[in-house]
Design a binder for these strands. Structure first.
Lengths: 323, 323
DNA sequence: TACATTTATACTCGAAATGAGTATAAAAAT
DNA sequence: ATTTTTATACTCATTTCGAGTATAAATGTA
């Protein structure tokens, strides 16, 4: 067995949310797709993968990561194409990091981008995005029809129903990755054509919509994983507070949760939930904004982490009826 | 930058549950610790990591994996020591696979082992394991006391409370990994001494208990991750059925869930939950066992996967009060 | 055969959580 | 002075959950 030519890449979806806009730190180059901060794991010097990531991100973007969590390890051949060496195989370990936008960004090519630019169908705060009915579902129905046989068509139909919620199946804001993968396989994102082109014939590059902004390598896939994980975690861990300023109003908190989840929430119930959970405490001070009655400023009660095992942010009926 | 000397290892926690005993497939060698089926990722031939795993497991154990799920990628220096080459760095990607014990095991060194042999403190079905009060908590209190400073002691105390549930904090059966990591850091599992011995001085190898059966490399850590993931997933996905025969009684189903979760459940409520969820359907046939009234045989309704987004098995109050 | 034991299954009941309001207060804008 | 906007307190019906009770249907045993 010869020495395998693998290298391990560490990618980070560094997320923040200021002003109701969930954003991700991307590295932009002219003539190239946006990329996540990305660097090699150095086995000689990095004691753990996460330390390798922190070092790398620090060097490349000037960021000192705080909350960090491993997402998934992708190793699919053909979905991480490097222009340098097509034969080299890269296995990439994706991470999610949460931060505020108060750190200086060292490199000018590194910028905050709203994440819905990459996933416009994921933002249901105002209305169901029109593109779902207008572009996505028609194209997916064609994808179902083009299945090689009836059985495959059935499988595809079910995936479309579950992912985009037809016939009474409700929208599940956590299925971000499943939706992206479905669109990829249906050839509706630019990455598919790119990867397919490098793979083989690039025959049917027909007139299909290219949904959302593409990213380099498999970085949009990693970002989809990050959003899905964050949307899920919101509900049972107080992670939003990693994205909040030290003090905030309850409406600001709610807007941030809504921005991340891509959904609107019931205000009074949100407030009840947050209060009942003991997640925040009032400061006695009040915000002075332009309109409306001034709202009290709250701060996160870090102690809950020690008092209760799994405090989260219910977003509506979710998860779990036994078996 | 020189070519990094990394290889990628693929490890699988292959789980089954027959006769109320959750088991894991281990490779046993005389004079060596038990190991999970483990093999290298071959970038030249394996199109994806998961395919590499399936190939490897098939060759080594004769198993054809069905349900498979990636767990986590571990790369800690010093926690995956190979006797062959101490300098080589192994990054291992852990997987969870679920199966029934109806396949032939090819290699004789490969055997089913009850997983509570490795985690005896995780089985609360009959009573809270006595070893927690008798051995674990005293040793952990010493660990707290030995902290380098007051602040570190406080952190350690909190971890002990959250992991093993003191002062009214309830036992959380999902914290399997957190508990193992805590015991590792406190030097209460054999792997710690082994890794420390290879690392450095091996000074205080004192009279500490060695809890549970040790495993090779970081395989017990991977198994802990697998159990934790499975215990969590039970609640929102119908994964138990991967471990059941095609037909089963509701009590058999309940016993399997209990075995995995390490908890006893309320029978009538379990039945209500399963029925309300539409997870099973009666076959009209009845079991003929020795004692008691015969129970109806049920089968899993695979269709639920297409009807409802996230059917699971509530195990009691869990997860999620908003933020 | 009568009765104890074991398991299955149906049903009840109260507490808590959830979803969807209504009502009222306190500010700025018109 | 009135409208608009936001904050915040409360209500109410429904659902879910945890914990039982009651009854049925088998086997084992006195």
């Amino acid at each position: 067995m010869s020495a395998p030519v693998v290298s391990i890449g560490l990618s980070a979806a560094i997320v923040s949310a200021e002003g109701e806009r969930p954003s991700v730190l991307v590295v932009t180059h002219e003539d190239a797709e946006d990329a996540l901060p990305f660097g090699p794991f150095d086995p000689a010097h990095d004691r753990t993968l996460e330390l390798g990531l922190r070092k790398w991100v620090g060097e490349q973007t000037g960021f000192d990561l705080d909350y960090t969590e491993q997402l998934y390890t992708f190793g699919d051949k053909g979905r991480h194409l490097s222009s340098a060496d097509v034969s080299a195989r890269v296995v990439s370990v994706g991470y999610l990091a949460l931060t505020r936008q108060n750190q200086i960004i060292a490199a000018t090519e590194t910028q905050w981008r709203g994440w819905y630019q990459y996933f416009p169908w994921e933002d249901w705060r105002d209305t169901k995005p029109a593109m779902i009915e207008e572009a996505i579902l028609p194209a997916l129905r064609k994808f179902v029809k083009d299945a090689p046989n009836a059985e495959a068509a059935e499988l595809r139909r079910d995936r479309v129903r579950l992912c985009f919620g037809e016939d009474g199946i409700p929208w599940d804001e956590e299925k971000v990755l499943e939706r992206y993968e479905l669109l990829y396989e249906a050839g509706l994102v630019k990455e598919f054509l790119r990867d397919a082109g490098a793979r083989a014939s690039q025959k049917a590059a027909g007139k299909r919509p290219a949904l959302g902004t593409a990213m380099m390598f498999d970085h949009r896939r990693i970002l989809a994983t990050a959003i899905a994980r964050l949307r899920g975690k919101l509900k049972y861990r107080p992670v939003v507070f990693e994205l909040m300023d030290p003090v905030f109003t309850l409406l600001e908190l709610q807007r941030t949760v809504e921005a991340l989840a891509g959904l609107k929430l019931h205000k009074q119930n949100f407030r009840r939930l947050v209060a009942d959970q003991g997640l925040v405490e009032g400061t006695g001070k009040f915000s002075t904004q332009a309109r409306g009655r001034p709202a009290e400023l709250f701060r996160f009660r870090r102690e809950v982490l020690r008092e209760r095992p799994a405090p989260g942010m219910r977003l509506g009926a979710r998860r779990g009826k036994m078996v």
